[in-house]
Design a protein around this nucleic acid. Structure first.
Length: 506
RNA sequence: GGUCUCGUAGUAUAACGGUUAGUACAUUGGGUUUUCAUCCCAACAACGCGAGUUCGACUCUCGCCGAGAUCACCA
């Protein structure tokens, strides 16, 4: 049975680099029988605390469908799940270390410590606090005085589930701070206590913690507790350069992608496969398939670059997949609400922007049924749902007649204006004979084919002319489908409007 | 600087020590009764370098080079 946790600090939004360290532990926990995924908030640094960050974390996980079994909001047997509320627990463990002589109170002022560091750096010797231990090592500790670990340097060996067998020499072990002046623990100490208390079996975190491992291992040993398995994830790199993805360099938050119309399925799929694969050539994975196929030993151990183009490609695949497998109603529900799940499952914590509308403003006065019929013919060319705003205007508002549009078209510009007028007249008159009841895509298709014969025009010429006359858009779905959805009245009116404009121009 | 990690096409990746080094995105070209997109076909394009082990190395070992991480009373 695997117990894992996602333990972010509430210091801002969650970007793509962070989410993977939520997805993988989620998969590891949920693919084992009775496994648990815990959400713990590491808020021991009050200076970096950003109001609203916790809500954003909850919102992101909920949107991605990474529901936790234990943690904030939900509760559980090992709470509280905010580290700031677990002070007494940390102090209890701290006193154990003091009792065994493995921790000491250190009142040395910060500026003195800085001076040590500066001197060592200038002397070009590695700065290690253990070389500067205070004179009085027996000072009684009480909250208000920093508490340090008393290291006993030795070589360390350990196993990492991703990186393999690792080892370091004694030179990296030091007297790290366990409890800060404000009485709260450092991450270094807090996570060890919490993971033990919460019975975590796998610590999944970024490789940046690798260099602290020897110190952590020493603390586990000093506390005489077993450590969980370590799963170190390589970095997600920014599109440019070789830096890891970071907020500083403008990494977008997960919620920004949601607001652009990226589906949670696609985000989960893309990120899970960034640095992991199951050895087959499969590209599209649902959450269920990931749960079935994910394995720690196939996690990549080199950094992976984030590629937005591929994310958007996968999103396009997912838009089609959802339409094909779950139907237009399901896809439509995604276009009017980015996250229906968060609204129902998270009433206690209503989130900002939980209702997102991806349609053009002019669509608001149209029925759901009409919008669904538009969606059904345009969905297979969407990369993100917000493409609807640009691609579907002409279904909801009258396009502006612009003859230049015709003149700039590579097919239509070959036709004279009189030819254009005559063709539109012919099309108009033929379509007029179709009754409202018979105005179906199939009938329109055969009618257009008839017109092709009777006018002796190439499809590229005739269809482009009609297409532009009814849409004035750079592109549109297949002509017969577009006209069928637009309806008889609108199609005829638009053909007529363009024809009149040409006549006036002559 | 110390310590640690990583290194297959532009990107993400595959390949019991034996393959014409595979796949996907991107790019380029072509095909489908219109456009854009989808879809289909094709092309381009990679084992960082050097030794060693071996009949044979992308794969194992060592060195080098390159890239990254970390060295806080931040996580």
């Amino acid at each position: 049975m695997n117990i894992t946790r996602f333990a972010p600090s509430p210091t801002g939004y969650i970007h793509l680099g962070n989410v993977r360290s939520a997805i993988y532990p989620y998969l590891i926990a949920k693919q084992s029988d009775g496994g648990k995924f815990i959400l713990r908030i590491e808020d021991t640094d009050q200076a970096r605390y950003v109001p609203g960050a916790t809500e954003l974390i909850v919102e992101t996980l909920t949107w991605l469908g990474l529901d936790w079994d234990e943690g904030i909001i939900k509760g559980g047997d090992h709470g509280p799940y905010y580290q700031s509320e677990r002070r007494d627990i940390y102090h209890e463990y701290a006193r154990k270390l003091i009792a065994t002589g493995r921790a000491y109170a250190d009142p040395t002022p910060g500026d003195v410590i800085d001076a040590y560091r500066k001197a060592d750096n200038e002397a070009k010797i590695p700065y290690l606090y253990r070389n500067h231990r205070p004179e009085n090592m027996d000072l009684a500790w009480e909250p208000g005085i920093p508490l340090r670990f008393k290291s006993e340097p030795s070589p360390m060996k350990w196993h990492d589930e991703v990186m393999g067998d690792l080892e370091t020499g004694p030179e990296v072990m030091d007297d790290i701070v366990l409890i800060k002046k404000d009485g709260l623990p450092t991450y270094n100490f807090a996570h060890i206590v919490d993971d033990y208390e919460m019975q975590v079996t796998h610590i999944v975190r970024g490789v940046e913690y690798l260099s602290s491992m020897p110190n952590y291992l020493a603390i586990y040993k000093a506390l005489d507790i077993e450590h969980p398995k370590f799963v170190s994830l390589p970095h997600v790199l920014a599109p440019q350069g070789n830096k890891k993805l970071s907020k500083r360099d403008g990494a977008k938050s997960v919620t920004e992608y949601r607001d652009d119309g990226v589906l949670p399925e696609a985000m989960l799929n893309y990120l899970a496969c960034l640095g992991w694969n199951d050895g087959t050539e499969q590209e599209i994975y649902s959450k269920e398939e990931l749960l079935e196929k994910f394995s720690i030993d196939r996690i990549q151990n080199s950094g992976a670059r984030f590629d937005e183009v591929k994310l958007l490609w996968q999103n396009g695949q997912w838009i089609r997949k959802i339409f094909d497998e779950q139907g237009v109603d399901e896809l439509y529900s995604r276009t009017i609400s980015a996250d229906p799940a968060s609204i129902s499952s998270n009433k206690a914590n209503p989130t900002r922007d939980s209702l997102i509308n991806f349609w053009p403003d002019s669509a608001s006065e149209y029925s759901d049924e009409y919008k669904k019929s538009v969606l059904a013919i345009i969905y297979d060319r969407l990369k993100v749902l917000s493409d609807l705003r640009e691609y579907t205007n002409y279904f909801f508002e009258e396009p502006r007649v612009d003859l230049e549009y015709l003149q700039n078209n590579k097919f239509i510009k070959k036709l004279s204006e009189t030819e254009q007028r005559d063709l539109l007249t012919a099309v108009f008159e033929r379509l007029q004979t179709i009754s409202k009841d018979d105005w179906t895509a199939d009938n329109l298709q055969s009618t257009f084919n008839e017109l092709l014969e009777s006018t002796k025009k190439k499809p590229a010429e005739l269809f482009s002319l009609i297409r532009i006359a009814v849409s004035y858009a750079p592109f549109s779905p297949a002509l017969h489908l577009t006209c069928a959805v637009l309806g008889r009245d609108r199609t005829l009116a638009r053909l007529n409007a363009t024809r009149s404009a040409i006549v006036n121009d002559l």
